[in-house]
Nucleic acid binder design. Sequence first.
DNA 1: TAATATTTTTAGATTAGTCTAAATTTTTAA
DNA 2: TTAAAAATTTAGACTAATCTAAAAATATTA
Lengths: 218, 218
Amino acid sequence: MISHAEENYLKAIFKISEKEVKAASTNAIASEMQTTAASVTDMLKRLAEKNLIVYEKYRGVELSKEGNQVATALIRKHRLWEVFLVEKLGFAWDEVHDMAEQLEHVQGNDLVGRLDTFLGHPKFDPHGDPIPDAEGRWAFRPQSLLSTLKPGDRGVVTGVEDHTPTFLQYLDQLGLTLGAGLELLERFPYDQSVRIRTEDGRELTLSEKVGQNLYLKV
Amino acid sequence: MISHAEENYLKAIFKISEKEVKAASTNAIASEMQTTAASVTDMLKRLAEKNLIVYEKYRGVELSKEGNQVATALIRKHRLWEVFLVEKLGFAWDEVHDMAEQLEHVQGNDLVGRLDTFLGHPKFDPHGDPIPDAEGRWAFRPQSLLSTLKPGDRGVVTGVEDHTPTFLQYLDQLGLTLGAGLELLERFPYDQSVRIRTEDGRELTLSEKVGQNLYLKV
DNA sequence: TAATATTTTTAGATTAGTCTAAATTTTTAA
DNA sequence: TTAAAAATTTAGACTAATCTAAAAATATTA
Ligand SMILES: [Mn+2]
Ligand SMILES: [Mn+2]
Ligand SMILES: [Mn+2]
Ligand SMILES: [Mn+2]
């Protein structure tokens, strides 16, 4: 009795709450959902009515315990399906998001559990994002943005902040996919761009923008 | 730009047209879709507007060439996902229909093609129903209803007419799943029930109703 | 603190999909 | 061949989800 649209809003609120400590604002949700503030207000009323969020007019929203569970389950499904699409069907990591966006809404008795088993209980999705377990527990992996490394630091690519196909394809082109090792050689103060050496010995220059969207385990 | 609801109607019309030579009636569609005749009429107008069906008021409908393609593609997706759920995730054949009913609507560039490849290009689904190929061509397999066999005839179970979980579970219980061999020993004129011997030597009595819902290759 | 800017909510419409009840058309059968 | 029955369509209404434009509340800043 929770519609696809409602599920998507809960996930959006969850994602905003991950980054901000305070309640998620109407505008932030509208931006995340690519819709208007008026539509968001309409939906917030419905979600509050169903006790999926705690909503105070003009004050933003937080997920209720139940809303949090729904959002977590949805993210779990989304990421498991992404693993399936990449590992089993051979899609590239920049192609799977829109399909997972649909697959996450498919309902079925123990469908998620069986998918999880079939995939070997993966802890991270193809973008390096953690997959919560059936009880909603998140795996943690210490990682740092490339932009925080110092010359001489070595690291292994573990994830991305930016999930757009353009960025992912650019990383493919650079050979900087999940698991790739690198060493930071130098950071240029002028524009914060960095020079790195890959594990196969290539030297690359990366912009600050790349540095702020690439996670590494040091 | 074809909604889930529209896709489902096209599939319903396809299924009715498979059995009946003449145009599908509003009532037949309403029955197949578990909805009202009024709702069907509303939808028929939309589908005709989009040239997915040929519709003459009070005279029933037929699929247009394009509507036929959409319906065929949908059935292909439904049955491929059913194979996935049974073969890969280990669901029983009576559990997969509702999930496939949702999965068939998931859109993605070459998703079907890759799924088909992953599954090894299956020609039949877990219920023995044929899976059309990417060009919409159907595999054919000669099969007869158990009710048409004569004493002494042997056959292998290849499909079912009734797809309800109750029937499928009953067949499981009898050991009469796809691939099971049997010999018809006797038909009782009184109620058209039959006595059969399974390949592992068990003798069973099956009602006429079972006989009219079980397909065999003789 | 008062004016201004920003954010959020409300008002009023729109669309897809559905429903019930009434009207109309077609089919059946007397 | 007409009357009754059945099938189908139309009329009118409803809900979920969305939108634009206007109103109201909150936040900012002079
Ligand atoms: Mn994704
Ligand atoms: Mn992901
Ligand atoms: Mn099915
Ligand atoms: Mn099937």
